[in-house]
Simulated assay, not measured.
Amino acid sequence: MNKYEVIVIGSGIAALTIANCLYKNKNVILYTKSNKLTSNSYKAQGGVAAAMEKEDTWEEHFLDTLTAGVFHNDVHHTELLTKNAIRYLTQLINDGMEFDQDQSGRLRLGREGGLMKRRILHSGGDATGKNLMDFMFRNVQDKLTIVENEMVIDLIVQNDQCIGIVTKAVHGEIRQYFAPFTIIATGGAGQIYKFTSNVETITGDGIAMAYRAGAVLADMEFMQFHPTILYKNGEILGLVSEAVRGEGGFLQNSRGERFMEHVHELKDLAPRDIVARAIYQQLHKGYDVFLNITQVKNFDNPSEKFCKSISYY
């Protein structure tokens, strides 16, 4: 029987990143309650932000990130993120991860809300999450154990120390596994909301397990959200990538008004919280909100002039 030193709960980019960092020195096992490809990370359309251009700096990226976070950010962690993003993404590229390039071989960088410059790397257009996850799985597939369709339902705590996990297997069996270290990388809790583009497995159980075990939770009022999703007759049909607005798409209400022009200096590329509130205010006034894509080049379905959108959390 293998003795595992680190248990990782989850199978998204966070889980794979930590597993990739640890497998050389630790025996790692990863548990996921569905199949390994069922995650928000795998379905992520948007790209990855880093100041990769010579004309850009991590300091500018840092300031944009603080501004988008209304300066509630943890300054130290935000600095680590924006400063190290350049090195980390460069290493990914050197390791073989392919991001979109122009005809001259230069990274094709996009722009999204809250950014003053183009610094979004995409892979396969809107398939960045899928391509990055596939790449990361290839890197770790023979270097750690991945257990699918077995849900971690609780942490085993002894003397204020997590020593293992309790799982529920596919046929209902309750099992226990032990390891010196356990890492929770289960994502958020998007499914507690009526409207969300989160996959069905994102139910907040990792957060609940941590809380029951005595972990201190912070900033619980903040949830990852996206201002625009495709919405029809009360149903969510999918996310409309923020990159669409980065390439010229714009919001307008059912009166044809481009309301973001009067809300923020970045207009439709304002930070997400500002865009979401502006959309909500339009809906509250009784207007429908649409995303006009007529100015976006090479859109897959240019005959569809408008995409109805709403804010969601």
Rank of each mutant, 00 (worst) to 15 (best):
E150W: 04
E60L: 08
I184H: 05
E265T: 10
M223G: 09
Q224T: 14
F137N: 07
A208E: 13
T128C: 04
I202Q: 15
T294S: 14
F225T: 08
S41T: 09
M116V: 04
I86Y: 12
G204L: 08
T78V: 13
S241K: 03
S11L: 03
G234H: 10
K43G: 06
E235P: 00
G190A: 13
G187D: 10
V75Q: 11
L16F: 15
A127S: 09
I93V: 13
D64G: 10
D160G: 00
E59M: 13
I86R: 14
A278H: 00
H77F: 08
G256H: 02
N298R: 04
V152N: 11
Y193A: 13
D142Y: 08
K3Y: 09
A210W: 00
V48H: 12
L66M: 10
S104V: 05
H61Q: 13
T90F: 00
A278R: 02
I120K: 09
D56A: 15
N198P: 02
S39Y: 01
N94K: 15
V199L: 08
N84C: 09
H264V: 06
H77M: 13
T201D: 12
A189W: 10
A185Q: 12
Q101M: 06
M133G: 04
G248H: 00
Y280I: 09
M136F: 09
F178Q: 14
N301W: 06
V244Y: 05
E221H: 15
W58S: 14
G129S: 05
T203S: 14
H77D: 11
N139Q: 13
K267H: 05
Q224A: 15
C21T: 06
V28Y: 08
M220G: 05
F99L: 08
I13E: 07
H226R: 15
T78S: 14
N40Q: 04
F290Y: 15
Y88M: 11
E304H: 03
M116N: 10
E257R: 05
D219A: 14
Q101I: 06
Y313D: 02
Q45S: 12
F71T: 07
I165N: 03
E148T: 03
G256W: 01
A208K: 15
A44R: 05
